[in-house]
Amino acid sequence: MAGSPSADGAGRGVLDAGFQILEAISAAPEGCGLSQLARSTGLAKATAYRLAEQLVVLGAVQRVEQRYFVGERMAELGRHWQAAPRLRRAAQRPARVLAALTNSTVAVCVLDAGEVRLVAGVKGAEFFLNTTADPDVVYRTAMVQVLFAGRADNTVPPPTYSAAEWHRVRTGIADAGMVSVDHHDLIAGICCAAAAIRQPGVCDVAAIACMSLSQQFPPNLPGLVARAAREVEKNMR
Rank of each mutant, 00 (worst) to 15 (best):
S214F: 00
V122M: 12
T105K: 14
A107D: 05
I21G: 01
Q82H: 08
A75W: 05
E165V: 07
T131N: 13
N154R: 15
R140G: 05
A48P: 06
A38D: 05
A7K: 15
E53K: 11
D134A: 15
Q62I: 04
A149R: 04
V137L: 15
I173D: 00
R50A: 13
M1K: 08
A38S: 15
M178R: 04
M143D: 01
Q54P: 00
A226R: 14
A195C: 02
A52T: 00
L221Q: 10
P157W: 11
F128V: 06
A125E: 02
S40T: 03
V144L: 10
A195E: 09
G59D: 04
L147P: 01
Q20F: 01
G114P: 06
V56H: 09
A194D: 03
Q82D: 05
V110Y: 07
G124I: 04
R227H: 12
D112C: 13
H183S: 01
C109M: 10
E233T: 14
L129Y: 03
G189I: 07
T141C: 06
D136R: 15
L101T: 03
V179A: 10
R96W: 00
C109N: 12
G9H: 06
A10R: 13
P5G: 07
N103E: 14
S4Y: 10
G78W: 02
G124N: 12
I25K: 13
V156E: 13
L101G: 07
R230A: 14
L15E: 09
R73Y: 01
E65I: 07
V97F: 01
R89K: 10
E23W: 08
Q145I: 05
S26F: 03
A38N: 14
V110E: 06
V181D: 01
A228C: 11
R50G: 03
Y161L: 02
V61Q: 10
N103T: 08
H167V: 08
A17D: 12
G172R: 11
N220A: 09
G121V: 07
A2C: 02
Y49K: 14
A38Y: 06
A27E: 14
P159D: 08
H80Y: 08
L22P: 02
V64H: 03
D185P: 00
A194Y: 05
L34R: 15
L221V: 04
T160A: 11
F19Q: 10
V169D: 09
G114M: 09
Q199C: 15
S212E: 00
V179E: 04
T155R: 06
D185G: 10
R86M: 06
T141P: 00
P200T: 09
R170A: 10
D16R: 15
Q92Y: 01
R96K: 13
R168P: 00
A209M: 08
G150T: 06
A194R: 11
A176T: 00
A27I: 06
V225F: 09
P159C: 11
S26M: 07
R151T: 13
T155V: 08
P158G: 11
D112W: 10
T141G: 13
R39G: 07
G33C: 11
A91S: 13
L22T: 11
L147T: 05
C191D: 12
A84I: 05
Y161R: 13
A83I: 04
W81T: 04
T171M: 00
N220G: 04
A83S: 09
N154Q: 07
R12E: 10
A152D: 06
G59Q: 05
P159S: 04
V57S: 04
N154V: 04
P94W: 11
A196K: 15
R230E: 14
L118W: 03
